[in-house]
Design a protein around this nucleic acid. Structure first.
Lengths: 232, 232
DNA sequence: TATCTCTCAATACACTGTATCGCGAAAGGC
DNA sequence: GCCTTTCGCGATACAGTGTATTGAGAGATA
């Protein structure tokens, strides 16, 4: 093809300036809006007006992007308070609040070891707040609180999603699963579960979370003052 | 209508006899061997010598298959023991053992509400074992133990995978992350974390799990005998 | 026997994460 | 200042995903 009729190459758009931070911000926005499934490399790239492959200059793998997202949220998790108990409670509550702001975090927490700078800084803050405690107690205590929080918020978010999926204006979880449970109970199996549903306490998510947390903190307190655990 | 009560389609004798149970068994085998990512409807169907779409007669959605897998494992989780403490400990330990047998369970636990027959039966066993306790204590206690277990095994499995990914014969987690942490610590940030790594206790996964669990159980014990929690 | 219904599987679709590769522009050597 | 080399970017490609659709064939019914 002769030059004369060959079209000029399309004007190249000035390459959009990019950074890990911008990428992560875009990914977080997508996840906040439409859940983790909405975070695909193509969509993230699209939100930044960039080709998908461009991202691979900044991350090696999608999992790395998810790690960065988690660490970015940890930038806002800085437990504080007076005394070990308040610090641990603050750790739990601020983490839970972060999950409420970013529900997708419930899917990621505990899924991979987190060693990013913000996560480490958060851990450092907790350890500093627990400096009065012997490390032999502080380390397992932190570990236990973290484990508890991860599991608790996972279940909380799972339940919230189930509610939401079963009709948005319905505030009753009962609406979707209640009838099913009724039918199951009618068969007479699971009498203990049945009586729990009928006569048991009906705590909301926050109360349940706090109740479990206080169990844990009471247990730590017992170990601190008592020195040993209740014999098995 | 939920999977649990929806009847299976009538068994066709002709081509390949199929059942939910066979499908779930195949899926579990795949997941045990190569992780959750290896569970695709195509692969499950392939393992059963069947077209992928055939499965949709038995499940509506892949998530339902995962639910069925979780419930299948719960068939083996039947906590028992004398007294509430042993029952709760048994709940935690048997769940953890199940996760060790099926690592993929760590990815699923807590991710969606579980209302399958085996899960309900397991809950019924726990509640029955805790019949001496007031429901106002038993329910939050079970909830807390479950939350703790979910989070703890998630982190445990996450760490195990990270170890495995960093050289299979290496028993030291340090090998992969140690050098990175050394470099981070060299910068002088995170002094508390650094001193924890250097001087803190080095518990293995089982010890950590049990330590946190005993905190929790001690806390429950305190509430049972004491009546109230430590003031905040 | 003819029709109807229901089930199964093949095809198709939109989408995923990522490997490969070729081009265009910037940087380095003369 | 020109030529070459390097390198980063983006298009294309690939193998795989979950699931909707569709068409055929078999069993049941009239």
């Amino acid at each position: 093809m002769l030059v004369w009729e060959r079209p000029e190459p399309p004007g190249r758009p000035a390459p959009a300036p990019l950074s890990r931070e911008a990428i992560v911000r875009a990914a977080v926005r997508l996840a906040d809006a439409d859940g983790l499934d909405a975070v695909s490399l193509r969509k993230v790239a699209g939100a930044l007006d960039v080709g998908p492959m461009r991202l691979y200059g900044y991350i090696d793998t999608k999992e790395e992007l998810l790690d960065l997202m988690v660490d970015a949220v940890y930038a806002g998790i800085r437990p504080d308070g007076d005394g070990w108990r308040e610090v641990l409670r603050s750790l739990a509550e601020t983490t839970r609040r972060a999950v409420h702001r970013h529900e997708w975090l419930a899917d990621l927490l505990g899924g991979r070891p987190q060693l990013g700078p913000n996560t480490l800084a958060s851990g450092d803050a907790v350890l500093t707040g627990l400096k009065d405690l012997d490390l032999d107690i502080a380390v397992p205590a932190i570990s236990a609180v973290n484990a508890y929080v991860i599991g608790a918020v996972r279940r909380e978010i799972a339940e919230r999603r189930a509610e939401r999926a079963s009709g948005l204006d319905q505030r009753q979880w009962q609406a979707a699963y209640g009838p099913y449970l009724e039918r199951v109970f009618a068969a007479g199996r699971f009498p203990a579960v049945e009586s729990m549903v009928r006569d048991g306490p009906h705590l909301d998510a926050g109360e349940t979370f706090r109740a479990g947390l206080e169990f844990l903190l009471d247990g730590v307190a017992a170990r601190i003052s008592g020195g040993g655990s209740t014999p098995r």
